[in-house]
């Protein structure tokens, strides 16, 4: 908690430097600090299309540069960036469906990797693909990116109650589908 408060103070100081003196180097530091997780978020959202994810990440940071004056510090800077990134993804999503591609990917997995069918992580990936887009997105933000329900609600522009119910439903489905793996899961956890 103390670490995240210190990180937030560093981000605030860098934002203030950019706004006060049009300091490109301060923005570069912000970019270096946050590009890794923003690109990881987008890679998951576009189902592993790295080039598309990087294009969206670039668009995200350009928008952040233009709109930095609107950052009030109510949310963490990282959360603000995730929100811009998610909004860029949604705009691109309306033009191009990654779901169609993911269906193709599923077929390719089945054709080329029969020897991995016993792999828990392959099954987890497939189980994730079977979740609804909203459940996948909520689990990505709440569990994998480690946001609180309130932060995820801010990023996804959803009510907090909806975020919680998608998270619960998503985890319940995964638990059901991965039930045959429960021993292996417990071994991994140990």
């Amino acid at each position: 908690m103390a670490d995240s408060a210190a990180e937030a103070r560093i981000d605030q100081a860098l934002v203030a430097r950019v706004l006060a003196g049009n300091d490109r180097r301060a923005f570069e530091q912000l970019l270096r600090r946050h590009q890794g997780l923003v690109r990881a978020q987008l890679r998951r959202l576009v189902h592993g299309d790295h080039a598309a994810a990087d294009d969206l990440a670039q668009e995200t940071f350009l928008l952040a540069w233009r709109k930095l004056g609107q950052f009030r510090g109510d949310a963490r800077f990282a959360t603000w960036l995730y929100r811009i990134a998610y909004s860029c993804f949604l705009q691109a999503y309306r033009k191009k469906s990654w779901h169609e591609e993911s269906a193709d990917d599923e077929i390719i997995h089945q054709l080329t990797a029969p020897s991995h069918t016993n792999d828990l992580h392959v099954d987890l990936e497939r189980a994730m693909q079977r979740l609804s887009p909203a459940e996948q997105t909520v689990l990505l933000h709440c569990v994998q990116l480690g946001l609180s329900h309130e932060e995820a609600a801010y990023v996804l522009t959803m009510p907090v109650g909806t975020v919680k119910s998608h998270a619960l439903r998503g985890k319940a489905k995964l638990k059901l589908w991965l039930a045959p793996w429960s021993d292996a899961v417990n071994e991994e956890q140990a």
């Binding site: 890794g36 940071f61 689990l139 991965l178 899961v185």
Partner: peptide
């Protein structure tokens, strides 16, 4: 629930290496 969350976190690739991304963005702003 803890087990599922642990699996999901392990499956997530996490922080992506920069590999020149920052320079490319800084050139375009």
């Amino acid at each position: 629930d803890d087990s599922i969350e642990m699996l999901l976190r392990r499956q997530f690739e996490g922080h992506v290496a920069d590999d020149g991304f920052t320079e490319r963005v800084m050139e375009s702003i």
